[in-house]
Amino acid sequence: MRLRLPSLFLALLLGGILSAPAQTPSQSPRAGETTAAPRPTYVIQDIQVEGVKNAQTRQFVIQSSGLTEGQEVTLPAGDAVAQAIRSIYDLRMFSDVAIYRKQQSGTNVTLIIEVTPEPTLAAYTLKGIDGGDREDLKKKIPLLRGSPVRPSDVERSKQIIKNFYEEEGYLRTEVDVQREESEGNRIALTFNVNREEEIEVERIRFLGNEQFDDGDLQGAMDETRENRWWRIWKGEKFKRDAYEKDLDRVIDHYREHGYYDAQIVQDSVYYVGEDGLGIDVEVREGNRYYVSDVTWEGNTIFPDRVLSEQLGLSEGEVYNGKALDENLYGGQRESGVLGLYMDRGYMRADVQPTVRVVGDDSL
């Protein structure tokens, strides 16, 4: 559900008391019962790394583990060892990490850190797309030649490609990845992109609207429009980000005409046939509001009359949320109330409106 409400907020704080469990006196084990023996502790005499050949990388793994010679640790599976494994995983260089003891002399042990490196990216290519898109995508895809490549990196790259083409109206884009391994634990990736056909918006329906018909609300949208035969050279593609902004514009349309409480209750996007989309948007219009009074606080440079003239909202007229924002902060033609202060050199001046509902139809 999408809710777009102006600056009326009701904060409800719920306090709870959690009762602590009653403590019971400690009891000695009964006859025949045994208590778990504490896990033994050892002193690290030496730390070795297996799974990588480069000496600098081995030293880097040891430093990242947080383990040091002379440190006392609990084995097996003590807290220090568990934290060391997590720290090495966090390097995002290895697909598997294990720590175990190799040699023991009394309480002194040699620890082995065994790692399995992720493959290194040799190169990646994008197939099935044109040159312009290829350059744009390479700026977005988080793959660097010579860097480790994890499965999550590949999946993220696939999703970036899909999102890129969904924004262009290709909602059914498929991405297949081919992996080619080579010596030295290197890997080359090929992303085969199939955009399928563009998906066009076949219908937009509004539910719950009584004050404005579907045509009025569709007209408030900027980029999300129904496909029509007379627009044969310009199919109406569906773009998710543009659609979200257009829903905001629908609410702005209501606010511009006094419907302060207007909301998008819910919306749905679904396929119509093989190559079309349908959109249903349910609105709650609420009451139409009128300006009851305008008061100013904290103003010492300009009197109320000057600020109210710049604001342009008079008592008794229909509330216009769009005009309120533009006349406070400036629009295309006017600098707004805030501009008056900036023109006087008050560059840090700020204006924060508080809108209160008075009765059933006044603000």
Rank of each mutant, 00 (worst) to 15 (best):
R2C: 00
L5N: 06
L8G: 05
L10M: 10
G15K: 12
I17G: 02
A20M: 11
Q27H: 08
S28E: 12
S28P: 04
P29G: 05
R30C: 01
A31E: 14
G32Q: 06
E33G: 04
T35N: 04
P38I: 13
T41D: 08
I44Y: 08
I47Y: 12
E50S: 08
G51V: 06
K53D: 14
A55Q: 15
R58N: 07
G66K: 10
T68K: 14
E69I: 13
P76V: 03
P76Y: 02
V81W: 03
Q83I: 08
A84D: 06
I88E: 06
D90K: 12
R92P: 03
F94W: 09
S95A: 05
S95R: 13
S95P: 04
K102V: 09
Q103F: 13
Q104C: 10
S105C: 05
S105F: 11
T107R: 08
V109F: 01
V115H: 06
T120V: 14
T120K: 15
T125K: 08
L126F: 01
G128R: 08
I129P: 01
R134I: 08
E135D: 04
D136L: 10
K138R: 13
K139C: 04
I141C: 05
P142L: 00
L143S: 08
D153P: 06
R156D: 11
I161V: 15
F164T: 07
Y165H: 04
E166Q: 12
E166K: 14
E167K: 05
Y170D: 03
V175Q: 03
Q178W: 01
R179L: 02
E180T: 15
R186Y: 01
L189P: 10
R195E: 12
E197K: 15
E198C: 02
E198K: 15
R203W: 04
I204D: 10
L207T: 13
N209W: 02
Q211H: 03
D216S: 13
L217E: 09
Q218E: 15
Q218I: 15
A220W: 06
D222G: 01
R225H: 14
E226Q: 11
N227H: 12
R228F: 07
E236L: 00
F238D: 06
K239S: 06
R240G: 05
R240S: 08
R240C: 00
A242L: 08
L247T: 11
D248T: 11
V250S: 04
V250L: 02
D252M: 12
H253I: 02
Y254G: 11
G258Q: 07
Y260V: 05
D261R: 15
D261S: 11
D261K: 13
Q266W: 14
S268Q: 13
S268D: 11
Y270T: 05
Y270W: 12
E274Q: 09
G278A: 05
V283W: 01
S292D: 15
D293F: 08
D293M: 07
T295D: 10
F302L: 00
P303Y: 09
L307W: 09
S314N: 11
E315M: 09
Y319A: 04
L324V: 02
Y329G: 01
G330T: 03
G331V: 10
S335N: 15
L340Q: 12
Y341D: 09
D343Y: 01
D350L: 04
V351S: 05
Q352C: 01
V355H: 04
R356L: 04
D360Q: 13
D361Y: 07
S362C: 00
